[in-house]
């Protein structure tokens, strides 16, 4: 039997690593499978470099499309000529960094991937633990910079959702299923991004006298309210990201055509 952790000398001598009787493993397993599926899917889409644009929709993995290799019609398209790989790689690292350093996802991957711990009061398998005090995990403290970039990206994706109200020919007045999906995705991403704990700190969390900063306090109160559901928004936005991208993929690859509710 190990002689560290809960089996350290002086502690109650109990052989079991946990005495929990509930299905504590279910949640970390579910999170592991869901996040693995997302990573595999997004890696496939990011590296594929095709089927990301079908007017008026662009996949969020490729927006803004910055390389000269971008397909015609994508905005802004083309300023980076030396980039030979998938144009998505110029952009996708931003949401990846934001989600990786996100306080919710930290809980998720520490529990589900690193088993540190797999669940509360369940012994972890590692003999040593240094937390977020060393490289690379100490970089999680720079989550706010990822937030700033994610906010910029959100503006672009919101613009994409607005442009989805144009017909493929470029006239305003269009409503397809893709328009609804891209709009829902933009809303979900805003909720997820603004409910971020770093955003909460920036609004007013870092000050000690709310009463001297009433506007910042109001902003903090709003962010605090949505921050309570940060995990929910993290999952909803993850699903809408996949849905929005996959819908554009199906359209761009010619597998389906857009379901149009209204077109000018």
């Amino acid at each position: 039997m190990a002689t560290t952790g809960i089996h350290s000398p002086g502690r109650a001598k109990i052989d079991a690593d946990t005495l929990r009787t509930d299905r504590w493993w279910l949640q970390p397993l579910g999170v592991f499978l869901a996040l693995t599926a997302f990573v595999v899917y997004s890696a496939w889409r990011v590296f594929s470099g095709k089927y990301y644009y079908s007017a008026p929709y662009i996949s969020l993995f490729y927006s803004p499309c910055l390389s000269t290799t971008c397909v015609e019609g994508t905005e802004p398209g083309g300023p980076i000529s030396w980039w030979m790989l998938s144009p998505s790689l110029l952009i996708a690292w931003i949401p990846l960094t934001f989600r990786f350093s996100c306080y919710y996802y930290r809980k998720a991957y520490f529990r589900s991937f690193w088993l540190s711990p797999p669940a509360c009061a369940v012994a972890e398998p590692h003999s040593a633990y240094s937390g977020e005090r060393k490289l690379p995990l100490i970089l999680n403290n720079l989550h706010r910079y990822a937030l700033y970039l994610a906010l910029i990206l959100n503006v672009v994706l919101t613009l994409d959702a607005v442009l989805a109200f144009k017909t493929p020919g470029g006239k305003w007045g269009y409503l397809g299923l893709g328009t609804l999906i891209l709009t829902a995705n933009a809303v979900a991403l805003w909720l997820y991004t603004l409910s971020c704990h770093s955003c909460r700190n920036i609004t007013a969390g870092r000050i000690t006298h709310f009463s001297k900063h009433p506007l910042r306090y109001k902003a903090w109160t709003f962010v605090s309210k949505i921050n309570e559901h940060h995990m929910l928004y993290a999952w909803i936005s993850l699903c809408t990201v996949v849905l929005a991208d996959f819908y554009v993929y199906l359209l761009a690859s010619g597998r389906i055509s857009d379901l149009v509710f209204f077109s000018a």
Binding site: Y103, R106, K107, F110, R111, S116, P117, C120, A121, Y129, S130, G131, E132, R133, L137, I138
Partner: peptide, 11 residues
């Protein structure tokens, strides 16, 4: 007090 040890697992 070792704040850096906390990895936000919320137990």
């Amino acid at each position: 007090h070792g704040l850096g040890y906390c990895n936000i697992t919320k137990c």
